[in-house]
Write a protein that binds this DNA or RNA. Structure first.
Length: 412
DNA sequence: TCACGCTTCGAACCCATGCG
DNA sequence: CGCATGGGTTCGAAGCGTGA
């Protein structure tokens, strides 16, 4: 250290007073990157610049970068020293920071191991994100909690971060390679979500669409498959979203395959690619499509695929024209209208079912909104109710309905 | 006969809720 | 944080059907 200090001091002073020029004898010597130079005659002195290389010394090994610590003597030295109490105290603080750093280091190794296993070595940015979230989440958990377990916490943080960045991840695969049980995995996800609020608000549709795209690429199903899947995903989202991402992806892809390219790929191969069961998709199609749209005659997933095509036809999914227009509708921003001053003026049963008549004041001119409630969406024919082909088509979705307190809240 | 995809149905699991 | 409960969802294994 003394040598380093001397060098620093000498570098700060413009003159190196103890040196003399070899030629003119002047003591006006300065230091530059090449060496020592005489300011009077401009000659570079023969004397070498001192270059300090720290010599190897077994005792100094603790200074090495990586360990980043100074050892406060050996245990015996600390006890026998006259400054024993002080040294013990310093050593105690020293070891506290060591354990925290060791945790980060252990986490870093575990993250690298899992990324390596999942073949995600190109995702360095996500690796850094995982470590960052790991530190932040761990800092918020009280000491002694099981949720501070490094390996388990790393595993869950990786799961969260990959999902947030729309990178495919199979939870079963992650559980298999991590030191975590299935029960703990679910438990951790539930508990740790509150420390990562962005996970709850993430765009699930984007992740699911990414998985559908992977299916499309893997089985070479082409763009018709992808666009139909996208349409089904966005338009039926409210009805199908209440399950895991992979199941939704499987449901949408399966419907799409059954309607466009049944012969190209089997449903079971799509399911195994997504790590889900075909029976799950069958149950979903039965409940979310057939039961929801009140279509009788469901036998099984494959046997009822003709009926499925009929349903999608009636819902205007399979029309080639309007594809672009419908995509715009699907992608357009949603606007919420609260029919606060609407009044129900007619409430009779007729062929169409129930309907409401609503009035909403907008500046000086009143707006009239007709809401027709059908028994089933299949009873509704868009074309019949559009006077001209180019009439704008607005989709209304009933978001909240207060039976006794007033009119419904709508999402347009 | 075998492999593969599909169907069936009970078991296992998940999740929300409440309690201690 | 663990446990119990109950309803809904998903899994998993056995069996069936079909084509090579």
């Amino acid at each position: 250290m003394a040598t380093y200090k001397t060098l620093q001091e000498s570098a700060l002073s413009p003159n190196i007073s103890h040196l003399h020029c070899d030629i003119c004898g002047s003591s006006d010597i300065i230091e530059n990157p090449e060496g020592y130079v005489c300011r009077d005659c401009g000659i570079v002195l023969e004397i070498q610049k001192l270059q300090y290389d720290r010599p190897y010394n077994e005792d100094l090994i603790q200074y090495a970068r990586g360990v980043g610590k100074t050892q406060i003597g050996t245990r015996r030295e600390r006890i026998t020293s006259p400054l024993s109490i002080k040294l013990q105290r310093i050593n105690k603080y020293n070891s506290i920071t060591t354990s925290e750093r060791a945790v980060i280091e252990k986490a870093r190794i575990e993250i690298a191991r899992i990324f390596n296993y999942l073949d995600l070595n190109g995702y360095d940015a996500i690796k850094e994100m995982v470590l960052d979230k790991f530190k932040k989440i761990r800092a918020k958990i009280r000491p002694g909690s099981k949720y501070r377990n490094i390996e388990k916490l790393v595993s869950i943080t990786i799961y969260f971060c990959l999902k947030l960045r729309n990178v495919s991840i199979n939870p079963y695969e992650l559980i298999e390679i991590s030191n975590i049980s299935k029960k703990d995995f679910n438990d951790f996800i539930l508990q740790l979500q509150r420390f990562l609020p962005e996970y709850g608000e993430r765009n699930r549709q984007e992740y699911i669409l990414q998985r559908i795209f992977e299916i499309s690429e893997h089985f070479k199903l082409g763009m018709p498959f992808y666009f139909l899947s996208k349409k089904i995903l966005y338009r039926l989202w409210q009805g199908i979203k209440n399950t895991t991402d992979n199941v939704v992806a499987g449901l949408v892809s399966s419907i799409s395959v059954l309607c466009t390219c049944k012969e190209k790929v089997s449903i079971s191969s799509i399911c195994s690619r997504l790590g889900i069961r075909m029976s799950t998709i069958q149950a979903q199609v039965k409940k979310k499509i057939f039961q929801k749209f009140k279509v009788d005659g469901f036998i099984s997933l494959i046997k009822s695929s003709d009926l499925l095509v009929d349903i999608l036809n009636k819902l205007n999914f399979l029309e080639e024209q309007d594809l672009k227009a419908q995509e715009e509708v699907v992608n357009s921003e949603r606007e919420e209208i609260i029919l606060g001053n609407a009044s129900k003026v007619f409430n009779a049963h007729n062929d169409l079912g129930y309907y409401y008549f609503a009035i909403r004041e907008e500046q000086d001119s009143p707006a009239f909104i007709f809401l027709k409630i059908y028994d089933s969406p299949l009873d509704f024919n868009y074309e019949k109710h559009r006077k001209r082909k180019d009439d704008p088509l607005l989709e209304f979705e009933l978001y909240k309905y207060h039976t006794s307190k007033g009119p419904p809240l709508l999402e347009v």
